[in-house]
Design a protein around this nucleic acid. Sequence first.
DNA 1: GCCACTATTCAGTGTTGCTATCTACCGGTA
DNA 2: TACCGGTAGATAGCAACACTGAATAGTGGC
Lengths: 109, 109
Amino acid sequence: MGKQMTEMLKGTLEGIVLAILAARPAYGYEITARLREQGFSDIAEGTVYALLVRIEQRGLVDVQKVPSEKGPPRKVYSLNAQGGDYLEEFWRTWSFLAERIEQLHEGER
Amino acid sequence: MGKQMTEMLKGTLEGIVLAILAARPAYGYEITARLREQGFSDIAEGTVYALLVRIEQRGLVDVQKVPSEKGPPRKVYSLNAQGGDYLEEFWRTWSFLAERIEQLHEGER
DNA sequence: GCCACTATTCAGTGTTGCTATCTACCGGTA
DNA sequence: TACCGGTAGATAGCAACACTGAATAGTGGC
C-alpha cells in the first residue's frame, strides 16, 4: 500500500471500523475481509486486531465470544451507546476536514 | 483541538499544505495563519515548521530566503515539479478514501 | 530598556498503522 | 499418521506524524 494511504488511515481507520460495526456486529477476520473487498487491498490483519483491542479497552464496543464451525472461537464486536457517540463525533470531525480539503481541491483547478 | 482531529490530520495536513503552496508560494508563519483562518483553529506552529522541513528534505518544494520588514528573514516555499506529482498522488489517495468513507456514512442513515 | 509582534527551530511525548511472527482449531488428503 | 490450507486471534518492535513547550532572533514603538 502507498505510504500516503498508510498515513491517511491513521485516525480514519478507527472511524471506518466503527461505522462497519454500526451497520451490524462483526468479528475481526470478517472486518478485515470486508475492508479488502471494499478496495483497502492490503490492510494488515494485525492492524485490525490491534485496533479492536483499543476500542474495546476504551469501552466503545461490547464483545461476545461465539464458537465457529471452522477454526477458533470468534470475538464478535458490537457498537454500544458510547461507541455511537464517538462515531458521531467522528463524522463531525470528518465532515469538517473533508469540506476544507474539497475547497482546496476545487480552488486548485 | 480534539484528539480525533489530531489523528485525522496525520497524512492529510501534508497534502493541505502542499495544496496551499500549489496556489502560491508562502512561508511558514503565513501558512499557519491561513490555516487558522480556515478554521483549523489550533494547529501548532511547531507542527507546520516540522512539516515544512520534511517536505523540503524530500525535495517537494524549493526554498528562498526573503528579508522581512518586521522580523527575521522568511523562508518562502514553493511547490516544484516533484511536489506537483506528489500532490496529484495525494488527491488520488484522498479521493479513494473519501469515496469509501462517504459510502459508509450514507449507508448508515 | 522593555514589550509585542513576527518568524523559525528543536527535544521529548503519545498515538497510530505496518511488519513479522506465533498460537490455535478444523477438514481434507496423501 | 502427517501435513497443509483456510479460519481466527494475539503481540513485540518499528517508523511516521502531530502536539507540547520552550528557546532563539529580528524589528519597531512606548
